[in-house]
């Protein structure tokens, strides 16, 4: 087992933890490790660290490990943990803020699919104002290399009139562009 100097870790991660607390409005220090969040998490089996462990790692300043974790990317934002936490911590909000921070630091580690998906999704809105589903599916499959993902449901979807093959731009694209430019400008 690896030994960790918690005092050093905490000192080094002070700024990050302050920012996390500010942006999420949540204090991981409040967690008393009852594990209720982990017990009810529907995605726990697919995570590398269960949510309660993420909380403990934050308390110990293991910031790199948390930002590199698959947990923050595969959390489904279902908020079951939040609804049940006896310390009233919005764990889902913390996961969300951690994801945003990892995204800005370009830390994706095992979350390649998520990186590609979120990027293609946001690009689609940036260029059309709405989601272009066929473009999303194509971009996702090309970007991840999973070329056959969901090709079995594409045809039935099309037959049911649920897929439009061409994108459709909204009229207020200038406003969408201003929002995107502004987000870039303020770095959020």
């Amino acid at each position: 087992m690896r030994e960790i100097n918690v005092t050093q870790k905490l000192e080094k991660s002070k700024d990050f933890l302050r920012k996390l607390q500010e942006e999420s409005g949540q204090d991981p220090g409040q967690c008393f490790q009852c594990m209720k969040c982990t017990g009810g998490c529907p995605v726990q089996f697919a995570m590398d660290y269960p949510p309660s462990q993420i909380m403990r790692m934050l308390q110990d300043g293991l910031v790199d490990e948390v930002l590199n974790s698959f947990t923050i990317w595969t959390c489904a934002t279902c908020s079951t943990c939040t609804a049940r936490c006896p310390r009233d911590i919005d764990i889902a909000q913390l996961m969300d803020t951690l994801r945003v921070m990892a995204f800005h630091k370009r830390r994706f580690n095992k979350a390649k699919n998520m990186r590609v998906f979120h990027t293609v999704f946001m690009d689609s809105i940036g260029s059309h104002g709405r989601l272009y589903e066929v473009g999303l599916a194509l971009g996702l499959n090309l970007g991840t290399g999973n070329l056959l993902q969901d090709t079995d449901i594409g045809l039935p979807m099309f037959m049911k009139g649920k897929l439009s093959l061409l994108p459709h731009n909204i009229k207020g694209m200038n406003e969408i562009k201003r929002l995107y430019d502004y987000a870039k400008k303020i770095g959020e």
């Binding site: 995204f103 979120h118 999704f121 709405r130 406003e175 995107y180």
Partner: peptide, 24 residues
């Protein structure tokens, strides 16, 4: 002339657009 609210992706990648897109 509604726009996409950004779904999971906007709030996974930034604070401003996840608010601004639905706010519009």
């Amino acid at each position: 002339d509604w726009n996409c609210c950004g779904g999971t992706s906007a709030h996974s990648t930034g604070h401003f657009l996840s608010f601004a897109l639905p706010a519009r």
